[in-house]
Every structure is written in structure tokens, then in C-alpha cells.
Amino acid sequence: MSSADLTGLSGPAPGLDVAERRKARRARVERWARWLLPVVVMAATIALWQWYVVAYKVPHYILPGPDRVVDALVRDWPMLWPALLVTLQITLGALVVATIGGVGLAVLFAQSKWVEMSFFPYAVILQVTPVIVIAPLIFIYVPSKIVGLLICAWIVAFFPILSNTTLGLNSADHNLRNLFQLYGATRWQTLRYLRLPAALPYFLGGLRIAGGLSLIGAIVAEFVAGTGGVGSGLAFKILEASYRLNIPRMFAAILLISLTGIIIFAVLSLVTHLLLRNWHESAVKRDG
């Protein structure tokens, strides 16, 4: 940017002043760049995409330009919006159940090493077996489609919460544990006042991963369920559009899914920040 004025300033002028001014300018530039840069790069990418589609006359059933995607988004909105709501419902439902299940199991595991040793393998098995191979079975065993979808999304999402929270519950400071022991704290008090707060940053880290995974779980399960009609989600719309070679609508639905994922991540990041800003190293702002 300004290597020219920098060398111009660093002549006989008082050294500190120059350095301070340079620092202030760098901070100003950085403040703008943080917002401007991603926006500019995004705009450039979209422009490049549009240019490529027009210049090489790519047929819209292979790669639609961004104009066609936006067009599809607007035109198909009455159909995409309810589908988005269905997917969102399953995603958030799965996230809630994963949170309750993950934290609940972690607390249970933390109560006794024996329980943990006995049941942790099942959690691992559920995690490492791809949901896409279990899903067909689940839809056979579970009559309700919504419940089946929820179960699939839950299986994908709960493991990071479980494993992170278990780690967090076990990483409370040893001297603090001694202190609780010294004052005759009950098991419940130790959990409530020491182990759960100590586990909070770990849990929140797991929750942010689980947020993205529950969306993925919901989508994958919908693909497997593959039924249409009323109450079908975005994944089914994508599947349907692909059968009809309606590529712009596929792009529009994918765009919605990505945006949903980004919003979930942003909200969970905000929650994390609000809960940890007073005390945890990861959220504390440092001067300098």
C-alpha cells in the first residue's frame, strides 16, 4: 500500500512520532480490511463466475450463472422457504437433543469410571459408523419420518458434545478439587460448582462442531429418507431438482443450506463469546 510514504516519513522527523503514526494508520487499515477484504473477494468470485458462464456460453443446465441462481431463489421461494423451515426444525431439534444427550451422558460418565468404560465404546461405534449406512435401518424401525430424521441427525451431532464435555468435566483444577474435598463438598456440589463450570469452554467448543454436524446429519438423513410430499426438507428439494435437471434451483437450495450453517456457527460463536468473555483465555481481549 504505502511503502512510498513510509520511506518518505522516516527521514529526519522525530522517530517516535513516525512510528506512532504508522502504527495508528496500520490499525485503521486493518479495521477496514477486516470487513472489506472478504466482501471484495466474494464479489470478485461472483463476477468471475458470471464472466466465465457468459464468455464460454456454459449451458445453464450445467452451470447457471449467479443471476440465474438468484432468479431461482426468488421464483422458487414459496417452495424453498417451507423446505428450509423443515430442515431447520430437524437441525435445531437434533442439536437440542444432542446437547441434552451429550451433556447428560458426559455427566453420567463423570460419576464413575466404570460407567464410562462400559458405555464409551458404544458412543465411539455410533460416531465412526457412517450415518448414511445406519439411516435406512432407522427408517425401517422408526415409523415416524420426523423422529427418524431427528435420530440420524442426533447420532452425527452428539459425539463432539459428549467427548468434549467428558474431557472438560475431568479437567477441573486439582487444587480446586482438593479444596472442595477439604470443605466437605458433596458429589453434586462438586459437579455443580466446579466440574460443570470447568467443562463449559470444552462443551461450547463441542457445541460449535455439533451445530454444523446436526445440519449435515439432517441433510444426509433426508437424502436417505428420500420421500417427498408435504413436510419435505431442502435435501429432498435438491434431489428432486437434480432429477429434473433444474440446476439453478439446486444451487439456490445449496446456497440456503450454506447460509443456514454459517448462521448457526455465528450464533453459537456469539453465545460462546458471551459466556466466556469474563474469564476464559480464549475470549478475553488483550490490550496491545
Binding site: D173, L176, L179, G184, Y193, W279
Partner: peptide
Amino acid sequence: EPTLMPWASVFANVHLPLRLK
């Protein structure tokens, strides 16, 4: 080490032994 609970205010840290009772 001071062995304070980082998530709790100074008041809550000092309150801890009484709270446990």
C-alpha cells in the same frame, strides 16, 4: 497457587466455603 475459580467473581470465590455449607 491462588487456586481461584476463574469463572467466578472474587466475591463468589470467597463465598465458596460457605456456599458448600
